[in-house]
């Protein structure tokens, strides 16, 4: 049953530095699905596709290329846990494979680091690895306790889906893959209107807290209106917006939002029989009795 595909484990930096519990959950869950993780200590920040790429595209590309080279040297594909990381790694890998002149220029820049981009590996977000290596139907066999009665608002996020011609994961304007991955666990994905709307992290990064809360208010109200018990994400930046940002938004608008936010690997873990505690739910800010009672066992 096991696929035992080995991957270079690209942890990024927001998860190790701020949300280490997601790294713990990934190390707990992924190997059980046959996704084996190899640590490479030389990996650095990806670097991010919003601000660093904006400031200096050539350096952004070179840093991403060096990270890809490290996995190429081990002859394995990369798996990561963050939409920002996959957007950078997949875009760099795509551009450098496609454009020989750019690759030559990049290899001149990398020459004195001892690394050279060859274009021999794939880069994947863990959701892509799950879809490619296991697939929806086989994932069903890992479900021990179906999440019956749990309504989930999924938020796939922008940088895992766009540009669609590079990421090749889902329709950025009407995403549905994460819904299918939630449905196979026995939970019910809710088809809310603002599913494709960005989490608003760009506002938070540029200090625009009013705009960030306004966006979150609309999105959270819409999720609640469609009956969601919780939110599922696959990115630490989206998580930060919906978890920390939900508290700020609740206070600002005097609306008592209570939509716990879980990473897909956590909700998969619940269906595999892990408890809330084991999946590090205590590390989250937004908690809700209704959600917790739906996951109570036996």
């Amino acid at each position: 049953m096991s696929t035992n595909n080995r991957y270079a484990f690209f942890r990024g930096c927001l998860i190790p530095a701020r949300y280490p519990h997601f790294e713990y959950v990934a190390r707990t869950i992924l190997p059980q699905l046959g996704i084996q993780l190899l640590d490479i200590d030389e990996f650095t920040c990806c670097a991010d596709p919003i601000q660093f790429r904006g400031a200096d595209e050539l350096t952004w590309l070179a840093i991403a290329a060096r990270n890809i080279c490290l996995a190429e040297e081990e002859d394995i594909n990369i798996v990561c846990l963050c939409n920002g990381c996959i957007n950078t790694l997949a875009t760099a890998n795509y551009l450098l494979k496609k454009e020989p002149r750019l690759r030559d220029r990049m290899n001149r820049i990398l020459a004195d680091t001892g690394h050279q981009f060859e274009g021999t590996i794939e880069t994947k977000h863990y959701l892509q690895a799950i879809m490619d290596d296991i697939g929806i139907e086989r994932l069903r066999s890992y479900v021990k306790i179906p999440l019956d009665g749990l309504k989930v608002a999924t938020h796939t996020g922008c940088h895992l889906t766009s540009p669609q011609d590079i990421l090749r994961f889902d329709d950025p304007l009407d995403p549905s893959v994460l819904d299918s991955l939630v449905a196979v666990l026995g939970a019910e994905p809710v088809d809310y209107d603002l599913k494709a709307l960005c989490c608003g992290v760009g506002f938070s990064l540029s200090g625009q807290t009013v705009a960030s809360s306004h966006l979150l208010k609309d999105k959270l109200e819409n999720m609640r209106q469609f009956g969601a018990d919780c939110i599922t994400v696959a990115c630490p930046f989206c998580f930060q917006q919906f978890d920390l940002g939900q508290q700020t938004t609740s206070r600002k608008y005097e609306l008592d939002f209570k939509l716990p936010v879980v990473d897909y690997l956590q909700i998969l873990g619940f269906a595999m029989g892990y408890t809330l505690e084991e999946m590090q739910y205590d590390s989250h800010r937004v908690k809700d009795k209704n959600f917790e009672s739906k996951l109570k066992r036996g």
Partner: peptide
Amino acid sequence: MRAQLNLPSFAPKDVDDLGKIAKNTG
């Protein structure tokens, strides 16, 4: 938290490479 969860240490190695890259890209 990393220690409590028994996670391996996290500190990127060979960041000198990034200095070389920054020099070469301008």
